[in-house]
């Protein structure tokens, strides 16, 4: 029998992981909600940002927070580049072409990263303490990542709700021509959306590199998980994505302690498949 304290600790860790996963899912969901396109290579962008922070911090001695800011900016630039170079030329072509193009980008980035940086796992070592709460041990790095992720999500919410451009981002997906009649250039709104989505990938990268090591195939584990969370929450549904992120992270974290990490993933995937039959529109969708 496993000591309940370990399960409680795993549950807490699940919530902490959920915060970062929610951030990833929200970034992907934002792009999908506005452009109707899934960036298959989203987590590969995160991977690039992780490398950036790694090199800035370990190679150039930047403080981690500054590396994180650079990562956010770099992510935004990557997001705009993906939009202008890959998505924009394909906006009016079949969904399968967009899928193949961003999927191609995924393999390109993986191979390119392998070529440049080999398959070595690289870790940023921060001497952050482990804190003990009621007999449970929590990594301070995870706690910080969680708090920053939550703050970023609140920031995103306020941005989308209260600014003109944020409201335009929500509006343009509902009626592109009507938005043009308001004086907004849809192309510009898309670029801003892609920059915000990319910046979130950059922030997620900075939050992940203080917990995990980075390697060219980092996306292989987190990518499918992120897509599952988005689909489970209902594609384009922001609240759903957060709920799904917490559920999935809990299963993986608690399942990992009770059985094994692999079993945690297996259960998560099985739940995903079952849910797809029970609630194809996402967990928060009303039943037909």
């Amino acid at each position: 029998m496993i000591d309940p304290i370990f399960i409680a600790e795993a549950a807490l860790n699940g919530i902490l992981l959920g915060g970062v996963m929610a951030l990833l899912a929200l970034g992907l969901n934002l792009i999908f909600g506005v452009l109707d396109i899934v960036w298959i290579a989203y987590v590969e962008l995160v991977m690039l940002c992780m490398y950036l922070v790694y090199f800035l911090v370990t190679g150039y001695g930047w403080p981690i927070w500054l590396g994180g800011l650079a990562s956010v900016a770099f992510g935004a630039v990557l997001g705009v580049a993906v939009h202008l170079l890959i998505i924009s030329p394909l906006l009016n072509s079949a969904a399968i072409n967009q899928f193949l193009a961003t999927g191609g980008l995924l393999f390109f980035l993986q191979s390119f990263a392998t070529f440049l940086w080999t398959t070595d796992h690289r870790t940023v070592r921060l001497n952050l303490p482990i804190i003990e709460v009621a007999g449970m041990f929590l990594s301070f790095a995870r706690l910080i990542a969680f708090v920053v992720a939550i703050l970023a999500m609140i920031g995103l919410y306020l941005f989308l709700r209260h600014t003109f451009i944020g409201t335009a981002i929500r509006a343009v997906s509902q009626d592109r021509d009507a938005m043009r009649l308001m004086g907004a250039n849809p192309q510009r709104v898309y670029v801003v959306t892609s920059a915000v989505g990319g910046a979130m990938a950059g922030l997620a990268g900075a939050l992940l590199i203080i917990q995990y090591s980075v390697h060219p195939y980092f996306g292989a584990a987190f990518g499918p998980l992120t897509f599952m969370i988005c689909v489970l929450g209902g594609l384009g549904n922001m609240v759903g994505a957060v709920v799904a992120a917490v559920i999935m992270s809990e299963i993986i974290s608690v399942g990992g302690v009770m059985m094994s990490t692999e079993m945690g993933y297996v259960i998560a995937f099985v739940l995903f498949i079952v849910m797809m039959f029970a609630r194809p529109g996402g967990i928060l969708a009303k039943r037909e």
Partner: peptide
Amino acid sequence: AHVPEGRRIFPMLTVADNLKMGAFLRSA
């Protein structure tokens, strides 16, 4: 300003947000 056929309001936004989008122009 063009009020299009079929109104073309943003159905998922609130009334206030629709009006806000009307003032999207920098000058407005």
